[in-house]
Design a protein around this nucleic acid. Structure first.
Lengths: 158, 158
DNA sequence: GTAGCTGCAAACGTTTTGCTGGTTG
DNA sequence: CAACCAGCAAAACGTTTGCAGCTAC
């Protein structure tokens, strides 16, 4: 729990979103509100398609295009951040009030585990300080093989 | 044997590639050799299309599919690494003979310092093992403000 | 009322795949 | 000579865009 950035402004995500929309003369619609809600309820990184599937359960009439467009808006106003895992899919992760995390990624099956290690987090701070940097954020992805894919051992026959 | 973490062996890239192909009963072809050469001559990250264009100048008959397929092979044997910049394009960067390092990046002036911290490296291994993963490689970028940019909000020199 | 929105479907650009003749080991 | 590969073109994939009617402001 080392939330290094305590802001005095305590806007809710919805306020942030509404503010951004208003500032750009865009409109608040039921779809956008719903998408924000469901997006924020997601634990980790979501692809557009995954979000589309979840939203569709509550609002079957919604279209994929709306999901794509809204995710882009969320990224623009800082509520979401686009991350890529080199699997041809763009994923978004909530940036508001969500605990930071890193990724442990299986290169074989694409499975991704979110991890946070206090030792590493602290060490990163120390490292940055050693170089006189003030650290704002970081990104760490570990690539390897998950337990399942290690056992499969489909290669190196003989 | 996923060949991604062979740093101690002094194999040339061509040897690595040939070894990987042989181990999987795949064949060495002129196209694959040419693609490896041109790929290694690239300074940074290349997209499949960029590589295709360059290869085509030397071997006009080559097809895009071959480039895609070969890049995938290079990634499998650890000579290339796929990176995504969230622009809908998969890029590959050469991984051979390059010392691993992480990045400390100034968000104001773009200055980048290459770092390696043994404590973090070791801890990453431990973390992966805890989840049953075998770790092949990782990527860590720390973002913040460098000493110069901390002192004055100027977005100076570089 | 008007600018902006939605859902649909078609368009788009990248990557993959099926096929056939040719090449490697 | 058997397995694998190349090139081609079509398919598949995720994402964007044009449109006509609808909605928030």
């Amino acid at each position: 729990m080392s939330a290094a950035t305590h802001q005095s402004t305590r806007q809710t995500p919805h306020e942030v979103f509404a503010g951004y929309l208003a500032a750009n003369r865009l409109k608040i619609t039921p779809q956008r509100r719903l998408l924000l809600d469901i997006f924020l309820a997601e634990p980790g990184h979501v692809s557009s398609e995954e979000l589309y599937a979840k939203v569709k359960r509550r609002e079957p009439a919604i279209g994929q295009a709306t999901v794509y467009r809204t995710l882009k808006l969320l990224a623009e106003c800082g509520l979401a951040q686009a991350v890529s895992f080199a699997d041809g899919l763009t994923r978004y992760e909530p940036q508001f009030g969500v605990e930071h995390h890193d990724h442990l990624i299986c290169e074989a099956c694409g499975r991704t585990i979110e991890i946070v290690d206090p030792v590493i987090e602290r060490r990163q701070e120390e490292l940055a300080q050693r170089y006189g940097f003030s650290l704002a954020r970081h990104k760490m992805d570990l690539y390897g093989l998950c337990p399942d894919c290690r056992q499969d051992g489909r290669k190196t026959s003989r």
